[in-house]
Design a protein around this nucleic acid. Structure first.
Lengths: 215, 215
DNA sequence: TTGACTTTCAAACAAACGTTTAATACAAGC
DNA sequence: GCTTGTATTAAACGTTTGTTTGAAAGTCAA
């Protein structure tokens, strides 16, 4: 019972912190704002996490990374019925497991914003994310695609293409204020379906450039 | 003479502010840090700009927007010798006027980071940028590409493709910490040339997806 | 029930923040 | 040289921040 009580305050703080760090960024959010949102006491952050920065790191460890694992699981499930997936199948699964998977809209936005901000102002969290999450996943993707690519396409070139797919996908996730303004479209279900189709198509054709570089 | 003296303090503050806002973000930079870097007095920010936020807005008006105009000019120059540019020519000019133009490396990074952060935490600056800079430029690009596209490609679909090109380009600009880590490559001249080739190719093929949607 | 440990709490602390104020210095015109 | 307006400056101000402290409350096992 004590563990459950412990966990409740701690979990509430983590939830509030994740949301606020994603929305406003680490520097713009005070501990008082987080504890206000989580109905907890100011000193609880120091007690449970030791410091504001440690709280931030725990948000990545206990929220961001597990969510990425869920996305990856969905990616695998999308390909489970495809014995020898072509490049287009892999790219399609990549994009859709994030944009069209089981994440709620808010989760997806939070996930992207946390990453966006971490890239902008790198901390230890970025190092952890790249080494423990992105690198293994990129290796997996590379292994899936390698059989379909000509021998002259080296590993880094393939990596750049994978990063481009990620870049486009993330851009439309976090540049929502720009995209909405320019297109005059709110991110409603209909527009999001258009976006997903577009991103998938753009990414698949962009990736297929690898197969055309004979010169 | 008085105008020149006036302008020196003001300009120094703008320069320092731009650099620091780009590197660390609005919230993480104090006025004391800016005035320290610009060898000026704390109260000078209030005197010349009225507030920290106004300084931020002026950074966009007097640094970011003019630099975008320079990029746009280079884009136009790249196409000046091409009487009827194809889509690939336009995309190539888009990407290269930013990545391979006259901007210094630092300028390019600052330019991208300011935009990245503004997207993450939108202020009035984003509205100004989108309406005064991005929208007119997208219209220009659209006019250049329209003659080469099938009738069924509507305006928003074209816009999404243009945004995708911008998205990829920006991603590789500001996600430098990720890209370097994953590829093991510093952003030296050789790697940047590889990047530019890659991005251009990916973007051109991604855009060409528009010509293939017959179904 | 007691003791030991854990958790929560309010208050305090030192530092930092953006803004304001009033004095001083500078510049230009008459 | 004097006056007016501009620019710079140090100090003050009120507020906010992350961290610390010690007391109180809660929990669990003997």
């Amino acid at each position: 019972m004590s563990e459950a009580v412990n966990d409740q305050t701690r979990e509430r703080i983590l939830d509030s912190a994740e949301l606020l760090f994603a929305r406003k960024g680490f520097d713009a959010v005070s501990i008082r704002e987080i504890t206000g949102a989580s109905k907890s006491n100011l000193a609880a952050v120091n007690y449970h996490f030791g410091s504001k920065f440690n709280l931030y790191m725990e948000v990545f460890r206990q929220r961001w990374v597990p969510r990425t694992r869920r996305i990856r699981k969905q990616f695998a499930e999308r390909l489970a019925d495809t014995p020898e997936p072509r490049i287009r199948d892999v790219v399609n699964a990549m994009v859709r497991s994030f944009l069209d998977g089981q994440l709620t809209d808010q989760e997806r936005l939070i996930h992207g914003q946390l990453m966006q901000r971490e890239i902008a102002s790198p901390t230890d969290a970025l190092k952890m994310v790249v080494e423990e999450v992105m690198r293994p996943q990129q290796q997996r993707l590379s292994d899936l695609m390698r059989p379909h690519l000509p021998a002259h396409v080296d590993e880094n070139r393939l990596r750049l293409s994978l990063l481009s797919v990620i870049g486009v996908t993330l851009y439309f996730t976090f540049a929502r204020p720009v995209v909405s303004r320019l297109t005059g479209q709110e991110y409603d279900d209909e527009f999001k379906a258009v976006l997903i189709d577009h991103i998938t198509t753009f990414a698949i054709d962009g990736m297929n450039a690898l197969n055309k570089e004979y010169n």
